[in-house]
């Protein structure tokens, strides 16, 4: 990986249970940089998660809750987490075994890189 996000992505993908992490454009849902395990459909995750994150942000703003800090989708067999800044969204795709707390802290720290 040669982009500015390489270090962040390498650090996130090493967490147990994480199967993919991406930096995605919030407005277009296109991958800027990614680290994905084989079998993870990155483009689909990127497009749909960016769309969800954008809507979550708008919902929070409409409800008067202010900025969205961290977004987590908890499904039967895994999780999708997203956190964004400056029109970029950091997306992490993980299985059931992931330590969400640790990943969350790491993602929030990584947001500095997106600034």
């Amino acid at each position: 990986m040669t982009s500015a996000f390489g270090t962040v992505l390498t650090s996130l993908i090493r967490h147990r249970g994480v199967t993919g992490c991406m930096v995605v454009g919030e407005q277009d849902g296109i991958i800027v940089d990614s680290s994905l395990q084989i079998g993870v459909n990155g483009t689909a995750f990127a497009a749909l998660t960016a769309s969800l994150y954008r809507r979550a942000r708008r919902s929070a703003a409409a409800a008067g809750f202010g900025e969205t800090g961290f977004f987590e989708l908890d499904a039967e067999h895994g999780r999708v987490c997203a956190a964004g800044r400056n029109d970029l969204v950091l997306v992490v795709v993980a299985g059931e075994r992931v330590n969400v707390g640790l990943v969350r802290v790491e993602m929030l720290k990584a947001l500095e890189v997106l600034s």
């Binding site: 995605v24 454009g25 407005q27 277009d28 849902g29 296109i30 483009t43 689909a44 990127a46 497009a47 749909l48 960016a50 769309s51 954008r54």
Partner: peptide
């Protein structure tokens, strides 16, 4: 428009 995105349309 911004109800969708390029990524979603491509998908």
């Amino acid at each position: 428009d911004d109800e969708s995105s390029l990524g979603v349309v491509q998908l």
